[in-house]
Design a protein around this nucleic acid. Structure first.
Length: 496
RNA sequence: GGUCCGAUGGCCGAGUGGCUAGGCUCAGCUCUGCAAAAGCUGCUACAGCGGUUCGAAUCCGCUUCGGACCUCCA
């Protein structure tokens, strides 16, 4: 079996950084809580999916065979504080005057579009809650059989207190059941529950409810927490490697998930590594729909939003987010975006220059140590996916590339191959960045050919010391968003 | 109110008990017809106050400020 470089993951459950040892290497099972498809995703959501996109990419890069499951929540997510809130999908369907599944489809499509724009890899399996009603009913039965749930008026609730006698409810979020009780607000419509801590596994639907299914208890719908327990178990087994999600899902969602899994099987914690991505903030506050400070990727790209000075490309945003560690909050600002944009440009220019780097025939340059660079990259990612450190190493490589490109440093062909492979691997495969402007110096196509011609004409003018013509061409191109870079070898052009 | 987390240079952001990432910005230099690009150099920060230590931004305590969760949330 292949040897994998050491990878340490900060485990939310144990609160420790642990060496990653998959249950069944080289196979890895990873589950990430996906979106509730009742409205457009905002940038904060994107950050979480980006975090796990990089986890997925890096594990794959290392050679693991990853089964990445990310669900679509299309039922069971209630609005408001109490369990009597309206189903989010159903509510939206009423508002938009659409069939619930039209809502689901509409926002699922939107979600997929966004994922594609940010170059997120598709999960291996993307199951939906409504596609697993049968399995959810089966799990409820299992939990009932073990005595950790009870039926009340056609609904089924998880008995948290009973469960806590045998297991540890609150282990993940660090909560104590008594603290929770003391600090739980008194909510309306809790009378069906024996205890305010209990949460719904199955809810009986009233007559107006659009989405409902038959069950042994009532025509109704499953509780929100249940789907993730069911689908992760179905596709990854009762024990699997990584479970991810946003920080704000830790409690109650993930806590309930653990309770359901444990309650249904009797086996203790089914997930080996819990990972939680931190929030994207705006002016220090969490970006959230309820705060009204969120914006959609479309608004971000177009710049059409009060918070945005102008638009930013998807890769700029991706790079911006990767410059912070996933477990830290990241504050959004126009200044930071613009800085990221320039940094990305620098990185990508070097990437574009990579193939054309000159090589010397001499013996390898002892000052160029690609192996050391590779080691630093792998150590950075191996330290809980520390992309900021990785990027800092990549910028060291950028400096090296630029020095080679300008003949300050010479390398041989073997070194070049290693460097190209290293950078392509980390920049494109691991970080998932892409060159956004396909066209640049030397590219094919009519406009590319015309630009090359102009650059050549300008070169001739320069040779003849006809600065007026040379500068006129440069200025005209600049006005069109094309900049020219001069060097000893000649000039190249690049779209801004 | 309870639980937890954070406070880093002009900005964004990593980070280890001692060797002080990186990006952006700014200044100077090299290169260059000029500019851009690129390279080099400089700008030495860790909220405040105590403590532990030979030595702390990094460990402990207190204070101040901010945030998250406790209710739907990525």
């Amino acid at each position: 079996m292949a040897e994998f470089p050491p990878l340490y993951i900060q485990n939310s459950l144990t609160r420790k950084k642990e060496l990653f040892t998959p249950l069944n290497a080289p196979y890895v099972g990873m589950y990430v809580c996906g979106p509730t498809v009742y409205s457009n995703v905002h940038l904060g959501n994107v950050r979480t999916f980006l975090t796990f996109d990089v986890v997925y990419r890096y594990l794959s890069f290392l050679g693991y065979q990853v089964r990445y499951v990310r669900n679509i929540t299309d039922v069971g997510h209630l609005t408001g504080d109490s369990d009597d809130g309206e189903d989010k999908i159903g509510k939206k369907a009423r508002l938009e005057n659409l069939e619930p599944m039209e809502i689901v489809q509409k926002y699922t499509n939107d979600f997929h579009d966004v994922m594609r724009v940010f170059n997120m890899k598709s999960p291996s399996i993307e199951p939906s809650a409504t596609g697993h009603i049968v399995e959810q009913i089966e799990m409820i039965k299992a939990i009932l059989d073990r005595g950790y749930a009870y039926e009340s008026n056609g609904s089924v609730y998880f008995n948290v207190r009973k469960y806590n006698e045998d297991h540890d409810y609150g282990a993940l979020s660090g909560r104590k059941i008594d603290d929770l009780l003391n600090n739980t607000r008194s909510l309306d419509g809790q009378d069906e529950k024996n205890d305010p801590l209990d949460f719904a596994l199955w809810k009986k639907a009233d007559a107006s409810h659009l989405m409902k299914w038959p069950s042994p208890w009532s025509h109704g719908f499953p509780g929100w927490h249940l789907e993730c327990s069911v689908m992760s178990t179905k596709y990854l087994g009762t024990q699997f490697d990584i479970h991810g999600g946003g920080m704000d899902l830790k409690f109650p969602h993930h806590e309930c998930e653990i309770a359901q899994n444990t309650g249904a099987t009797g086996e203790a914690h089914s997930v080996r590594y819990w990972m939680h991505g931190n929030m994207l903030t705006v002016n220090g506050r969490k970006m959230a729909k309820s705060e009204g400070n969120g914006f959609t990727p479309e608004e971000l790209i177009s710049g059409n939003h009060a918070l945005l000075e102008r638009g930013y490309s998807p890769m700029t945003v991706r790079f911006f987010m990767l410059q912070g560690h996933y477990a830290s909050t990241l504050d959004f600002s126009n200044e930071a975006l613009q800085a990221a944009e320039k940094g990305l440009d620098r990185l990508m220019s070097a990437m574009a220059a990579l193939d054309g780097l000159p090589t010397a025939l001499d013996a390898p340059n002892a000052d160029v140590d690609t192996a050391a660079l590779a080691k630093r990259c792998s150590e950075a990612m191996g330290d809980d996916f520390n992309t900021p450190i990785l990027i800092s190493v990549l910028f060291d490589a950028v400096k090296l590339v630029n020095s080679i490109a300008t003949d300050r440093i010479a390398i041989d062909a073997t070194q070049k191959t290693a460097l190209v492979q290293l950078l392509n691997g980390y920049v494109f495969d691991v970080l998932g960045l892409v060159q956004e402007d396909e066209a640049s110096g030397g590219s094919e196509g009519e406009s590319g050919a015309l630009l090359n011609l102009l650059v050549e004409l300008r070169g001739n003018a320069k040779t003849n010391k006809d600065w007026g013509t040379a500068d006129a061409i440069r200025d005209a191109l600049s006005a069109l968003g094309i900049s020219i870079k001069d060097s000893k070898e000649g000039s190249t052009w690049e779209r801004d």
